[in-house]
């Protein structure tokens, strides 16, 4: 039996080496057309690659916005700059609390904001988060937190992508990618400070429910609630002032449980529900169910600039 286990162990080492070589080869074929547990996509939806590369040179900010695409398509740094405020939007597509925790761990001290604004989107709390994990693995640094993220997901696609990203990191190719600022296919342009501007010509049909309160947000997952608490602890440990917001959506009135996440917010932390504080029109302020158009962004940002001074950050 000993010789069996010895040979088995040697084979495992050999197979691991072949695995790494095979994965490296696989990454260089058009694998997305043939389906597989692997997705290393630099420069994907949402300009995360450019956003994160900007941070080291960006300097300290007044406000740091954290969340999903609602955030990086909702807060325009140019509007804040006109009003004397420097902001950064630290968001990614479908970003969950797990990913917000990872990003804050990495970049909070560098950006050193006076105020952190975190968007509470129920969908992101109910999502395991494989897609944003893959996004982060391909477009951000590889470190201990990447391993924590991969362990938490425990998904083959994540592990394979993690392994490849680590290889690319070791050989120094992970940070070579140059993302285009303008992506005509997506109608997107990256604006310094983390905002992604959607061309004003782009408009999807905004589908609204037939009956009010006929839909329900899904219950949050334990893992995301756990990371939400860890994120709050991280902010508290850094004596960081923060607020929670609920970004506007076109079909707010369709849901019967819009306050599903309120139960998890500490009482001492301010919460701004923009759907209730402002009057957004489904047909004129949004370009799809979840994202504001240019007019909607102007309305939101001007409101928030006024609110910022009421929140009295340090």
């Amino acid at each position: 039996m000993l010789s069996y286990f010895k040979k088995f162990l040697v084979f495992i080492f050999f197979a691991s080496f072949v695995y790494l070589c095979s994965l490296t080869l696989w990454a260089n074929i058009p694998y997305s057309y043939i389906g597989s547990n692997f997705l290393y996509r630099q420069g994907s939806y949402g300009h995360l690659n450019t956003r994160l590369k900007e941070i080291p040179e960006y300097g300290e900010v007044d406000i740091l916005f954290v969340g999903s695409s609602r955030v990086y398509r909702g807060f325009d740094p140019r509007i804040f700059k006109e009003n004397g405020l420097k902001v950064f939007v630290l968001g990614s597509s479908s970003q969950t609390p797990l990913h917000s925790y990872i990003l804050l761990n990495r970049y909070l001290k560098v950006l050193n904001p006076k105020l952190v604004v975190f968007d509470l989107l129920p969908n992101t709390f109910a999502n395991k988060g494989v897609e944003p994990t893959l996004d982060l693995l391909a477009n951000d640094r590889i470190d201990q937190l990447s391993f924590e993220m991969a362990f938490e997901q425990n998904d083959l696609m994540v592990w394979n992508t993690m392994i490849y990203a680590s290889i690319m990191n070791v050989i120094g190719k992970h940070n070579d990618f140059e993302e285009p600022i303008h992506k005509p296919k997506d109608h997107d342009t990256y604006i310094k400070g983390g905002y992604v501007h959607k061309d004003s010509s782009f408009q999807k049909e905004v589908e609204i429910c037939e009956k009010e309160k006929s839909m329900k947000w899904h219950e949050p997952l334990d893992v995301q609630l756990n990371y939400f608490k860890k994120m709050i602890s991280l902010l508290d440990r850094n004596n960081q002032k923060f607020v929670f917001v609920n970004m506007p959506i076109a079909h707010f009135h369709c849901y019967s449980n819009n306050d599903i996440l309120k139960a998890y917010i500490p009482e001492s932390v301010p919460y701004l529900d923009f759907n209730r504080l402002l009057d957004f029109h489904d047909s004129t302020d949004f370009y799809d169910e979840y994202h504001l158009n240019e007019g909607g962004v102007d309305k939101l940002d001007e409101y928030f600039i006024n609110e910022f001074y009421n929140l009295k950050p340090n």
């Binding site: 084979f11 050999f14 197979a15 072949v18 695995y19 095979s22 994965l23 696989w26 389906g35 597989s36 547990n37 692997f38 998904d155 083959l156 696609m157 394979n160």
Partner: peptide, 18 residues
């Protein structure tokens, strides 16, 4: 032989449905 077995393992991991 071992290379072939290793390629099979790679294919299993790359196509395993979660």
């Amino acid at each position: 032989r071992w290379s072939f077995y290793s390629v099979l393992i790679f294919l299993i991991m790359i196509y395993y449905q979660t």
